[in-house]
């Protein structure tokens, strides 16, 4: 049976979501998205030139992808809501990744304003995916507000510091029933794999792919890592033990026996 992630009525098989900032060209971004077979792609609405005087970023996103506009630049719920409505009005669909940030130093989200925006937009039939600091009580409130998934950060955006918030994210994964998607801070495919191993539904990666010297291969590497992590999660990871364990404790004598033959 196919292992599909269901969000907003869509069935998604690729659990690597990709962001579109920081690439050295739209063409390279497109090649990377194709190489990872991206199905969900986030775009800052502030970067979209709807009038399309020149190159339009949307033309470089594979047609079958789900476009998830984000509210980058919003400082409060009101601004995020207005950006979301503009995104919908411009024909970018009804998915929205809410980003509400007032602190440009750490780019950490404002959970309270994010919650407010989620409450409003979910009622307007948006598929709302809020970017958040990993906090269980806020995650629960986001669920109640109608979020389609929650997107806790692994570490600050663009920092490539990896899954520093693992303990908190594991708690959220264990406790809430909607998809948990780690967004931000992942620098290496192994970190993306780790997110999947602990039961996250997906990850979102941008900087680590975009500024790699070979984004096409890096995108592919992340995709493979996400697949591996997901497969491991489904298979069930073996428990961690403090001491060594022989690999065939019950039948080892047979092997020993053969050795004497």
């Amino acid at each position: 049976m196919a292992d599909l992630l269901s969000i907003g009525g869509k069935a998604i098989s690729n659990r690597l979501f990709i962001g579109t900032g920081k690439f050295s060209s739209y063409q390279l971004m497109k090649d990377a998205l194709e190489s990872a077979q991206a199905e969900v792609v986030t775009v800052a609405l502030r970067r979209v030139d709807i009038g399309s005087k020149a190159d339009n970023i949307l033309d470089y996103i594979p047609k079958k992808s789900i476009i998830m506009p984000n509210t980058s630049g919003a400082r409060n719920a009101d601004e995020a809501v207005r950006i979301a409505r503009l995104a919908k009005a411009s024909g970018a669909g009804n998915w929205i990744k809410i980003e509400v940030i007032q602190d440009n130093k750490y780019l950490l989200p404002d959970n309270l304003e994010t919650l407010k925006a989620t409450e409003i937009l979910a009622k307007e039939d948006f598929v709302v995916l809020p970017y958040m600091s990993p906090d269980l009580s806020i995650a629960r409130r986001l669920v109640d507000a109608g979020a389609a998934a929650v997107m806790p950060l692994g570490s600050p955006i663009g920092s490539s510091r990896g899954l520093k918030t693992k303990e908190l994210i594991e708690i959220i994964v264990n406790e809430i029933k909607i998809p948990v998607i780690v967004d931000a801070g992942l620098g290496r495919p192994s970190e993306a794999c780790e997110c999947m191993e602990i039961g996250c539904a997906a990850v979102l990666v941008n900087t680590a792919i975009a500024i790699s010297s070979d984004p096409v291969n890096m995108a592919r590497a992340f995709k493979e890592a996400v697949d591996a992590g997901r497969r491991a999660y489904l298979a069930g990871l073996t428990p961690v033990d403090k001491y060594a364990n022989p690999s065939s404790p019950l039948t080892g004598f047979l092997r020993d026996g053969f050795a004497h033959l």
Partner: peptide, 13 residues
């Protein structure tokens, strides 16, 4: 030179 020229990075709301 390997840079993307960004023409638009703002949105008046």
């Amino acid at each position: 030179k390997g840079y993307q020229p960004v023409l638009k990075d703002w949105l008046r709301i």
